[in-house]
Nucleic acid binder design. Structure first.
Lengths: 194, 194
DNA sequence: TCTTTTATTGTCACATTTGACAGTTAAAGA
DNA sequence: TCTTTAACTGTCAAATGTGACAATAAAAGA
């Protein structure tokens, strides 16, 4: 009985609006007013459905990380069991993952992590998973490579990949996509020698 | 005649305070109040000597970039004419450049560049210089390498280097310093084949 | 001492952001 | 129609940040 709840629906709208605001203004710059305007709701409603700023941020962080994890998980699951290097690079450095809004949001989270211990730990484990997974993938193609080499190469690839993100506004242009991929390729090739 | 001006002295104090605030709170979070408190001056004085927020930010950006440029310039000038790769890596990945405060400030500038067209261009050329210089340096040791390879390797090294910065709060621990350096070394070694 | 210049303090007005809450309206079932 | 539940609106108070400016104090030279 009673009026049906729109909490789920509204929460979704609000989080999407928050997401867009973070891309444009960063986390700190995303005031409740802006989020409300972006979502087309009153500020009171934003508070009513989601809560205060802190709860809002927590929800967004979880959502973005989950989304990123799912995408990544789906990606590495789609890779073949052997000869994985080429499609790995293809997937990492193709335009598909270059959603500008997503990049700016990730960048905002990384930046905020520098000033928030909790978020830092959250992002740290998020980042660690990438490296671990790449090590695991490369091990398929180069089973005789020692673990230090694999970790160094993985770290390099991840660095190059996220560099395009964190320096996105600086290095985002097409100009840097090719060198990035080539450098990653060279790192992988360096495992051949072993 | 008249009371002697303290403009130069105070401006220095204010900029140093601003610098510390940016490391702690980011640019947007560095209010005039905080800067005043950090410098031990009244907010009115901050305005009196330096001006409003925008002028303050301009001054800090120029100072940080100049400082960074000078350090980098001095570093590459100190490198030998030949066999430059090893000392280059040594210089890049030693602890000397791992000043946590400096890293956080650079990170703040990069982040802010994502939302400010003028700053973006400023940082872009700042970043470009690193890549260009590394290409030039590597060319000494590998004169027969083609320009695309040199650019890719340079881009990779710079990415790995700045990754430690931009992901500093996430990857700053000693754990990542060794893989970073090893990966960079492998990139350089990949130029041997040519 | 007087004047000039600048440092320094203090305060007012205005805008923004946020938290809290009262009050109203809409949608369901009884 | 009545009740219940929740959506929705509006507004007030407190805190914060900023720009502007008046007023005072200090340090120099004349």
């Amino acid at each position: 009985m009673g009026r049906p709840s729109k909490k789920a629906e509204r929460t979704e709208e609000i989080l999407q609006a928050f997401y867009r605001c973070v891309a444009r203004y960063g986390i700190e710059g995303s005031t409740l007013e802006r989020i409300a305007e972006e979502s087309g709701l009153k500020r009171s409603l934003v508070r009513h459905f989601v809560g205060n700023r802190d709860e809002l941020i927590s929800l967004l962080v979880e959502r973005v990380i989950d989304q990123s994890d799912n995408q990544w998980r789906a990606f590495i699951d789609s890779l073949p069991a052997a000869q994985v290097s080429a499609p790995l690079l293809e997937g990492l450095f193709c335009d598909q993952y270059s959603d500008a809004e997503y990049i700016l949001v990730i960048e905002s989270l990384i930046f905020a992590a520098g000033r928030d211990e909790t978020l830092r730990q959250r992002m740290q484990q998020w980042l660690q998973r990438f490296t671990d997974d790449v090590v695991m993938l490369l091990q398929r193609d180069y089973p005789s490579a020692d673990i230090d080499s694999l970790e160094a190469v993985s770290f390099g690839i991840i660095s190059i990949y996220f560099n395009l993100d964190s320096l996105a506004p600086l290095a985002m242009n097409q100009h840097y996509r090719q060198p990035a991929r080539t450098a990653a390729q060279r790192l992988i090739d360096s495992l051949e020698k072993t």
